[in-house]
Computed example of a mutant assay.
Amino acid sequence: MLLTEEAMKTAIILKMLSALEYDVFDPSEVIPEFTADVGIKKGEKVDYAIRVGGRISILIECKAPNAPLDLKHASQLYRYFSVTDAKFAVLTNGYDWEFYTDLDEPNRMDRRPFLTFNLTDIDTTSASELSRFRKSVYDVGAILSTARRLKYISALKTRLKEEFDNPSDEFVAFFGRQIYDGMFTANVRQEFAPLVKRSVSEVIRDRVNARLKSALLQNTTEAPEEDIDLEEKSEIETTEDEWDGFRIAVAIAARVIDPSRVVIRDQRSYCGVLVDNNNRRPLLRMYFNSPTTRYLGLFDGEVEEKVAVKAPVDLYRYADRICATAEKYKSAT
């Protein structure tokens, strides 16, 4: 675990900026400890400012690793947003990331982020939106065109998760009244609360199972990577580190290809990450079974090359090579 804010900046923030194609060694492009000329309290600064096309475009404020992100402790972001040309502000602790803009009022940073994700649990939608911040494709208009939709979808998803985990009286009553014939009293609502929660869980489970069944049927058309019987297959367990590595691989590959094309396929000796669920298109392999010695298999050359790594976050050190591999499959069908 990273212990200091400075270590986090070096190990995660700068590598993330590099993966987004910004030159972290050019202080005119990635400006550390940025201070504005006017309208700012003396000595106040933000951790990084990113200049794109000669203008300050993105502000980044870093907090201690795993510290809760609270805008009360990032007031300088608000002030800098209003006195610079920046259209986007980022608040992060290295793992959790929040992206802000000015959808509600011009030149005034919104209170609610339009994009949030955890780097160790990033989904394909967030990875795709993050890829829009790459230097080579950076387009303020294109990002803003989806920011409003993302902002409210994110808020709705958060609210729905809360309702699914702990259904409110209103949520229970909304569905209960549609199927209960009598008076929907407080006692009836109390009876329905666990039923609604269980029903939500079963609907989600059924939909996940349907997707898995569809994926398994699709896999039967692919050549098997290893001849593993069902008994051996059931013994394979994908670890949290392997899932973290997969999510990071998706985020990196999103610079080049649609992140939905990247899938995970675990094997007995390694955990593979494939493009198009095709074992002839390996993106990388994670040899994480040993608690002391770990390797990453890379495929940007003619044959697989194994390099030593310590943790999933080390994948960012090889972002360029992973992207080079993804580039080979970019136009594949």
Rank of each mutant, 00 (worst) to 15 (best):
T4E: 10
A7P: 06
A7N: 15
K9L: 14
T10Y: 11
L17Q: 14
S18K: 13
E21P: 15
V24Y: 13
F25L: 10
F25Q: 12
P27L: 05
S28M: 01
E29Y: 05
A36N: 08
G39I: 10
I40H: 08
K41A: 08
G43W: 12
K45W: 06
A49C: 02
R51C: 11
S57M: 14
S57R: 06
I58W: 05
L59P: 04
P65C: 00
A67R: 09
L69K: 12
K72P: 02
L77E: 03
Y78E: 09
T84I: 07
T84Y: 09
D85F: 04
A86Q: 09
K87R: 13
T92N: 03
G94M: 00
D96M: 12
W97F: 10
W97A: 03
D102S: 13
L103F: 08
E105S: 11
D110C: 02
R112N: 07
P113E: 09
L115W: 03
T116W: 02
T116V: 10
D121C: 11
D121H: 11
K135L: 03
V137T: 03
Y138C: 08
Y138F: 15
D139H: 12
V140T: 14
L150F: 09
Y152N: 04
I153N: 07
S154Y: 01
L156W: 08
E162I: 07
E163H: 14
P167E: 04
D169L: 02
D169T: 00
F171K: 12
F171L: 11
F175Q: 02
R177C: 00
D181P: 00
G182N: 09
T185F: 13
A186L: 10
A193S: 08
R198T: 11
S199P: 11
S201N: 15
E202D: 15
T221A: 13
E226G: 14
T239R: 13
E240Y: 09
E240N: 10
D244P: 10
G245I: 07
A251F: 05
D258F: 03
P259I: 01
S260T: 05
R261I: 02
V262W: 08
V263N: 15
I264S: 05
I264T: 11
D266W: 06
D266K: 12
D266I: 03
Y270I: 09
D276M: 12
P282A: 07
M286A: 05
D300R: 01
G301A: 03
E302K: 02
K310H: 15
A319V: 05
A319K: 12
D320C: 00
